[in-house]
């Protein structure tokens, strides 16, 4: 397991006046090398959960186990710097944390902090740029001169440059246009499939992640309502509504077709082209059946 949470609760010390979402009694396992979606309505505790993954927040109760590091409530936490390199946390609107005068300097900031040599850091930066589909020429640019989509990808690359085994992203596609969103999710999926990194994405746009996620965790008011495979989710889409989320159209259409033909046990077709092909196959079968 890449991440395992056992009976984890988190309480903000001062929630009397401000709206803060605590977490209560979370039991969650995330497998190494998987692509995981975490969804929940605003204020369900998604962002709080993410910050437990690299020790930015420490559990008030329970045990958080990340890779080979265990953080237990009430006990002194181990040195967290090595863990933070291995678990890259990308906050919402990560472009806002860029500060250097060139993209390259920003990308090597993390690696240097974690003790890589400048040469190694620069090599990692180039690799991260390529992984994010960015032109290496941009390395010399001022990050504030990039377009919105490029800046977002460069900021993600600055975390990727640390060579983390687990990458956790909070709403990575927010405010991007639909094509850039799809492209970014595609790039993240490749990091998972081709490089074996564990990718965890918090989103409230489930539709864009549905075809790619192996595993889903749904939160509601600080509690874990569901965790399971995309297949399990497709079999019971109503759970989304119980979590205050709406059922994405791709899932609604698949669910309708699956119910009509009893395909609930099949791997769901959650893109328009895969569903169209499945429908074509059904029609061909129907035709053949009626001829027999």
């Amino acid at each position: 397991m890449a991440i395992q949470l056992q009976q984890v609760s988190y309480t903000y010390a001062d929630r009397s006046l401000w709206r803060q979402t605590a977490l209560h009694d979370i039991n969650l396992s995330i497998a190494q090398g998987s692509m995981v979606g975490i969804a929940g309505a605003t204020g369900s505790g998604k962002s709080t959960l993410l910050q437990l993954f690299n020790g930015i927040l420490k559990p008030s109760q329970g045990t958080v186990q990340v890779l080979d590091v265990t953080i237990q409530a009430g006990e002194k936490a181990p040195r967290l710097l090595p863990l933070r390199r291995r678990v890259g946390l990308v906050f919402q609107f990560p472009e806002q944390q860029m500060f250097e005068e060139t993209v390259e300097k920003d990308l090597i900031f993390g690696p240097l902090n974690f003790g890589m040599s400048p040469e190694e850091a620069k090599a990692r930066a180039r690799q991260a740029m390529t992984d994010m589909g960015l032109d290496l020429e941009l390395l010399e640019r001022n990050p504030f001169r990039l377009s919105g989509g490029q800046m977002r990808k460069a900021a993600i690359a600055s975390v990727l440059a640390m060579d983390p085994e687990i990458i956790v992203l909070d709403e990575p596609t927010a405010t991007l246009d639909p094509l850039s969103r799809a492209e970014l999710i595609g790039l993240l999926e490749r990091l998972c499939r081709e490089q074996g990194r564990t990718i965890i994405i918090v989103t409230h746009r489930m539709d864009e992640l549905l075809p790619y996620a192996d595993h889903w965790a749904l939160l509601k008011e600080g509690g874990l309502m569901f965790q399971g495979s995309g297949l399990a989710l497709a079999q019971d889409p109503d759970i989304l509504e119980r979590c205050g989320l709406s059922v994405p159209q791709s899932l609604r259409y698949w669910h309708a077709v699956a119910r009509r033909f009893g395909l609930e046990g099949e791997q769901p077709c959650l893109t328009a082209d895969s569903l169209a092909e499945r429908i074509a196959l059904l029609q061909a079968e129907g035709m053949r059946d009626s001829h027999e």
Binding site: P178, L179, Q249, S250, A272, A276, A280, Q283
Partner: peptide, 23 residues
């Protein structure tokens, strides 16, 4: 759509893919 970085709504995508397959 591609030039404007947009995608059509899901039912439109589905209808287009079905038409491509001759449905």
């Amino acid at each position: 759509l591609a030039r404007c970085h947009l995608r059509e709504p899901y039912p439109w995508q589905l209808a287009r893919e079905l038409q491509r397959l001759g449905i």
